[in-house]
Each structure stands twice: as structure tokens, then as C-alpha cells.
Design a protein around this nucleic acid. Structure first.
Lengths: 243, 243
DNA sequence: CGCATTCTTGACACCAGTCAACGTTAGTGG
DNA sequence: CCACTAACGTTGACTGGTGTCAAGAATGCG
């Protein structure tokens, strides 16, 4: 269970001051651990979850399913993230949550979490802030998918992934795990696989970044930021990680 | 001031149970009223606001400014909306807020609002829920701007505007105010003005909807929903308005 | 009435989607 | 260890949708 508290504390520390009372409140939780297989759904559109998911390892994603069956990925989540925090206050899921690769998660019953939120306002503010930053990331995705060409779109996406991985201090410098395939990236960015492929190759040629076999190599962070017009302000971290 | 409480109560009632204690807490606020001219900014990217905006009348919008100067509209807001609620818990604005047409707003000092949130958990949950629904709308915008063709994109946008206007019970059936021009709609949906124009004309030909001169006429709601693949579930309203 | 803004239209170029084939990689079982 | 397979990445040819540009029509406001 310590593992769960640690993941949440580390994540919350990125944007909030985590006091002892917050840690104490989190320690009262008795989450249930669970392993997910690649592509396994943990929450479906229309569900009314009674527990909140916390990612411990691996990557989870949220997605919409369109009437033609197409899938639109909305966000990707790593250790410490709450991909369905909203379900605490909104009954019905308007999107689904699935695992991208093998993932470990914790399930916290809503009742338990609500009880601790009521006892610790700081915990409540931290989780609220978490959901607000989530919204900021969605806004940036609107802009990215609406106003940038495919190359910039992919570059921006890679910037965000790498920056958030660095912020979580789980990865070595210059490298981060990115267990997606190009089809899925296309479904996130609103472009076809072929276009993703050509954009990735263009980026490789710039020597700013390489992405092969689930590992992202950042070779020239500054240049990659320029290519993606990336400004991390929208992530609202207390301090920038060393890049 | 009653006007401000009314607008907020009406809006919160759409998704939450507004108890007497919530109304009492809201009545303690002493907001400052302000009129905005069309296109006037009220919050700029990078600002650290000390008050929250509540829309009383007219339409406000949030937008990103890109490095090339282009503008990406992120959302549009009407009476009762809190377009910068996030600033209560996130210092620095990652986007700007402006008026679309002539608008009346109320400014509530953060300190005051925070004090009342602490006194009334129900108020806090209602505002939190408000921000969560906001996020759901952003997610839908990602999908709309990434996965639908221009005609469906415009149709979906019109559906959302009309549905939210009906939910606010401020407009007559069949009609709602939409004080945008086609250029702005293009900047919201990630398509060019010319493409917006052609999509609007296609929609007119379907006899499902007409949009001329800042007034949206919905002629065939069911057909419009089909054209826009619109399902209002993501708005998370307690009860659907009569359409 | 005159001007500014917005809407509308057509011509044209090009980017990105689709389709289809092929290459590559990784995992599986014999 | 190799053969087989499935998933994924890559490429080219082609098409069509969407952006850009530019001009003209309509609308609204002073």
C-alpha cells in the first residue's frame, strides 16, 4: 500500500505542497491492487464507477468511441495519475479508460476517498488541482489537434510525454517509455497512420528525437520544443524538471 | 447582487442540488459588476487573477494564442458560467478570456469565494463539478476537432450551443443567440473561414438549422443531432431540457 | 449615403487520407 | 534453432478534401 501513497504523493508534489496531514489521510486508504493486460478496459463509457483508479506503473489512456466505431484517444496517464478522478463527482462516465501496455493500478473506493477529502482540505485541493491541470492538458490538446500541422503535432505530443515523464522522475535523462504504436498516436492526434509515420520520419531527420520500439529518445530538447511549439506552462508544475 | 446569485444558482442547479446553505453562502459574496465591450479581454494568458469571473449576460470565450499569432478558441460561456474558476487553485493563466459581444460579468474576489467554499462543502462540490463538466466539454472538443469532418464539426458545435442555451432556460424554443462570426467559428473548430462557410450552407440546405446574423434557428433538432453525432451525455445535466 | 465588416463564391494548389503492397520485427511453437 | 505468423512500420500511387487567395455581394452601422 505504501507504493500507492508514494505514487500519489510524488505526483501531487509536482503541483501542490503535500503536508503531513495529506500523507496521513492517504495512508488511511486501503486500495485494491490490480494488474491490467495491454488494451484491457478498466472503465467503459456509460459506467458508474464506485472506485477511483490510480496508475502505479505502465500507461493508461482515456478515449471516446465514435458512432462509426473509430476511437479518439484523449489523454495518456502514467504513475501517480488519477485517470477517472471526475467519477467522484460525476456519476456517468463520458469516456472509457484502458491500459496501453501492461499496467499496475490501485482502486480506491469512492466512499473512502470522499471521507479523507472531507477530513483533509489540503488533500481535496490537491486532487482538485490535479483535475484542473488535467483540463489544461485537454485544452492544449484542442489547440494541438486543431491548429498545428502533423509534424508539429507529433513533436508537441512527444514534448509533453517526455516532460511529464521527467517531472515524475521515473526515467533516465534523454529517454522515456512510450508504449504506443503509430496507429494509436494517429487516433490521439487526429491524423492517419501514414501521416504519423511520415511525421515521425521527418522528426528523425532533424536529429531532435527518435522514437522506435516503445522508447522515446530525446536528442535535442530545445530543437524539439521549437518544432512542437512546446511551452510547458500549461502543465502548471511547481518547478521544471532538469531536461 | 441578487442577479449574480440567481445566475450561479440557476447554473449549478443544472448539474447539482443547490441547498439553502449554498444559496446562503453565495449571498455573502459582494461581487463587483462590470460591462465588457465586444472582443475585450478580461483575463490574459500569463495573468495571475485575484478574482473569478461569472458571466451574467452576453458571451465570453477562452482562447490560446499561438506563436504565429493565430488564435485558438477553446470554449464559449454564457450566463452562470465561471470561465476562469481554475484560477482559484492554479496561479497562472494558461489561456485568455475575452468577451465575444457586449457582456455583463461579476467579479468575485478569490479570498471571498474561498472562504465560502470552506464554509459550505456543497458549494465546493458544485463548483468542483462545474470544473469537471468543463473538462468533459474540452474532451468532446478534442474529439470534435480531431475526428469529424467540417460539416459534422459545425453541426456538433451548434448542437452544443443550442442545448446549453436551452438548459439555461434563457432562450425561446427553436432559437438561440450565437454572436460569433464565421471566422471565429473557424478558429474554434480548426477549419478555415471558407470551409466554415461551405459547411454552414450545406447545413442550411438540410433544413435542420439556420444560422444568420447572430441568431441560431434550430428547425429539426433530431436531424441536426444526427448530422453532428451529438449525444448530450457529456454535459452531465441532471435533466434534459425540452428541445 | 458611405464605409467597414462579414459573408459568399470560384479557381487553384497541395496536403493529407486511402489503398495496397512490401519490409521488418518480435513472439510462438515445433 | 529455425519456421511461421501476426503485428507493426514503411513506401508509392492516387484521389479528394481543405486551405489559400482574391474578388464580389450583402449586411449593418454611423
Amino acid at each position: 500500500m505504501q507504493q500507492v501513497v508514494d505514487a500519489i504523493v510524488r505526483k501531487f508534489s509536482e503541483h501542490s505542497s503535500v503536508t503531513d496531514t495529506v500523507v496521513a489521510a492517504l495512508s488511511k486508504l486501503t486500495p485494491q491492487l490490480r494488474a491490467l493486460a495491454p488494451r484491457q478496459d478498466i472503465v467503459r463509457q456509460g459506467d458508474r464507477p464506485t472506485s477511483s483508479v490510480v496508475v502505479l506503473s505502465g500507461m493508461l489512456a482515456r478515449y471516446h468511441t465514435l458512432s462509426n466505431g473509430r476511437r479518439q484517444y484523449l489523454s495518456f496517464h502514467i504513475s501517480g495519475d488519477f485517470p477517472d478522478a471526475q467519477a467522484l463527482f460525476i456519476d456517468k462516465m463520458d469516456h472509457a479508460v484502458c491500459a496501453i501496455d501492461e499496467a499496475q493500478i490501485a482502486l480506491i473506493p469512492h466512499e473512502q476517498l470522499r471521507a479523507q477529502l472531507n477530513k483533509s482540505p489540503d488533500l481535496m485541493y490537491a486532487l482538485w488541482r490535479e483535475t484542473l491541470i488535467d483540463a489544461a492538458i485537454f485544452r492544449e490538446a484542442i489547440t494541438n489537434n486543431s491548429a498545428r500541422n502533423p509534424r508539429a503535432r507529433v513533436a508537441h505530443f512527444l514534448c509533453e510525454r517526455y516532460y511529464r515523464a521527467r517531472a515524475s522522475r521515473q526515467e533516465r535523462a534523454g529517454i522515456c517509455s512510450l508504449p504506443l504504436n503509430q496507429t494509436q498516436l494517429g487516433e490521439a492526434l487526429g491524423i492517419s497512420v501514414v501521416t504519423v509515420n511520415r511525421a515521425v520520419q521527418q522528426l528523425r531527420r532533424t536529429k531532435a528525437v527518435d522514437w522506435t520500439g516503445h522508447i522515446l529518445h530525446v536528442l535535442n530538447w530545445k530543437r524539439l520544443c521549437e518544432l512542437g511549439e512546446f511551452d510547458p506552462a500549461y502543465l502548471h508544475l511547481k518547478r521544471s524538471p532538469r531536461m
